[in-house]
Nucleic acid binder design. Structure first.
Length: 488
RNA sequence: GCCGCGUUCGUCUAGGGGUUCAGGACGCCGCCCUUUCACGGCGGUAACACGGGUUCAAAUCCCGUACGCGGUACCA
């Protein structure tokens, strides 16, 4: 099995593209096949310089290593279409010689004029096809010598696929089953553009054939052009690879997950945005895998290895799927929790040092231990600055609601208990507090809330015993003193 | 308009003729645990688009309609 991911470097890697790459990757790994990356840079108008590097970086981030591709090599290279133009010309001439394609000289104005001529309410977008091609300037209407003269004059021209009406083109899609099209509904697709570069349709079948691709797995937006590809394979006498069209990922309001549509709802379209926001690669991969595929049982969490073992095309759905950010967030939370505290500390050390001057690695690891069940992203650690420094303000709403007349009094008295406490462990601190509650005959909340406010400046957070044990005796006493001057 | 694909809880989905007055997950709500916020546990909310067939029996098969999505470029 040989599969490929063939993105166009017209922008940063799209999250939907990543899913396509993932499904290809999983299948290749599962079958011990090859996963190929091919850059489809035949559109010079939309070419974006930094895009290829972004594609490479994002695939590496997600853990999708390819076996052949730009920078990696392989025996079927080059893997950039801009470096393979000669081969496309070769195939295009073969097709013209065989009468399967023809040369056309019509410029934009001629094309517009033709469409204008035929446009009606019933036919808003007339096609360049069997019904109109005889009105145009092409190899079918000009004599061979006229064509040659124009070519000799270097007149701009394209090469079009000659689609004859009257027959049915069908193929079996691995996701959708049998799909058929009538040939008269298909236009004479341009194969070779006047700039000398091929269109996707030509380049794609030439490369898939030359690179011995066995399974073409791509988005559903390609389904309508697949009959053209089938025609091309047949014209060349090549075998048609297995086709599989994946359901489109849609925005929560419906419609393709386009930049404008999605980002308005807080759903980034570029994979790099997910990296910037601090998503775990495993979480995005897990989420994307389940967006359009399901294992058939009730497992939700999947590592790349588990996905590789379980994935199959026949469990890929056929209908469009909506991107659900809440679920992605849930996956991220789950995956953050699977990480070792020490591992998270490695990631967060620099920021901890820069923001809080915390260079004590053991301290960082323990702080992470207190926060882990409360994080969606690793960097949520820093949403609790009191783990590293005295609060510089106190949550006003919480104070207004729960800071009572006796609060300062309790705090002051409990400070004495703490000051005389010798053993500064979680267990001992718990004992100390219980002793206070018993002696003073008050509820836990009477002291717990003021204490929490003094130490963290907030009304919620990790266990207070653990927090005091973390920050230490002196810091605990200092924070209580500070709060007593700041709070009523 | 035409062509193609699709349609089970709000979302991702299981189920593909009887065992399902439809199961799981996210979300939401409630309860329990708990000093708090979370975690966790338990429970709840909520769906077979519609209309015809076929059949003893249909969410499951067929046809139609509606709706959604994609395509309709010298873009991919």
């Amino acid at each position: 099995m040989r599969v490929r991911f063939a993105p166009s470097p017209t922008g940063f890697l799209h999250v939907g593209g990543l899913r396509t790459a993932l499904y290809n990757y999983l299948l290749a790994k599962q079958h011990g096949g090859a996963f190929i990356l091919r850059i489809e840079d035949t559109d010079r108008k939309r070419f974006v310089e930094a895009a290829e590097q972004d594609i490479l970086d994002m695939m590496a981030w997600a853990g999708l290593a390819f076996d052949e591709g730009p920078g990696k090599g392989g025996s079927y290279g080059p893997y950039r279409q801009s470096e393979r133009t000669e081969r496309y010309h070769e195939v295009a001439s073969l097709l013209v010689d065989a009468g399967k394609a023809y040369i056309a000289f019509d410029d934009d104005d001629a094309l517009d004029a033709m469409r204008e001529r035929h446009r009606t309410t019933e036919n808003p977008t007339p096609r360049y096809d069997h019904s109109t091609r005889l009105e145009m300037l092409n190899g079918l209407t000009l004599s061979a010598s006229e064509v040659q003269e124009r070519l000799d004059r270097n007149e701009p021209h394209v090469i079009r696929l000659k689609v004859d009406p009257g027959h049915t083109i069908g193929f079996t899609d691995a996701v959708r089953g049998q799909v058929v099209f009538e040939s008269e509904t298909i236009d004479d697709q341009v194969l070779m553009k006047s700039d000398g570069l091929p269109t996707y349709h030509l380049a794609n079948i030439v490369d898939d054939h030359d690179m011995c691709i066995t399974h073409v797995i791509r988005g559903e937006e390609w389904l309508p052009s697949t009959p053209k590809h089938v025609l091309l394979y047949e014209a060349m006498g090549w075998e048609v690879p297995t086709m599989a069209h994946l359901p489109l990922i849609m925005s929560p309001t419906g419609g393709k997950l386009s930049k404008r549509n999605a980002e308005k709802q807080g759903i980034p379209v570029s994979v790099s945005s997910y990296v910037e926001q601090g998503f775990e690669p495993e979480a995005l991969v897990n989420f994307l895998a389940l967006l359009g595929w399901n294992p058939g049982d009730e497992q939700e969490m999947f590592s790349m290895e588990e996905l590789t073992a379980s994935f199959s095309l026949d469990r890929v759905g056929q209908s469009g799927v909506q991107f659900d950010m809440k679920k992605l967030l849930w996956f991220n939370e789950q995956w953050v929790r699977t990480r070792a505290d020490a591992d998270l500390a490695d990631q967060l050390a620099t920021e901890a040092s820069e923001r809080f001057g915390c260079t004590d690695r053991d301290y960082l690891v323990r702080a992470i231990g207190l926060m882990k069940e409360r994080m969606v992203f690793a960097r949520d650690l820093f949403s609790a600055p009191y783990l590293f420094q005295s609060p510089d303000s106190y949550d006003e709403a919480a104070v207004a609601k729960r800071w009572k007349a006796a609060s300062a009094e309790h705090l002051l008295r409990f400070r004495e208990y703490l000051a005389s406490s010798g053993d500064w462990t979680v267990e001992a601190l718990e004992e100390t507090l219980k002793a206070y509650v018993e002696k003073e005959e008050v509820g836990m909340g009477a002291i717990m809330f003021p204490l929490r406010m003094a130490l963290s400046g907030t009304g919620g957070g990790p266990s207070l015993y653990a927090l005091m044990a973390l920050i230490g005796k002196q810091e605990t006493l200092d924070r209580i003193d500070t709060s007593l001057t700041a709070l009523p």
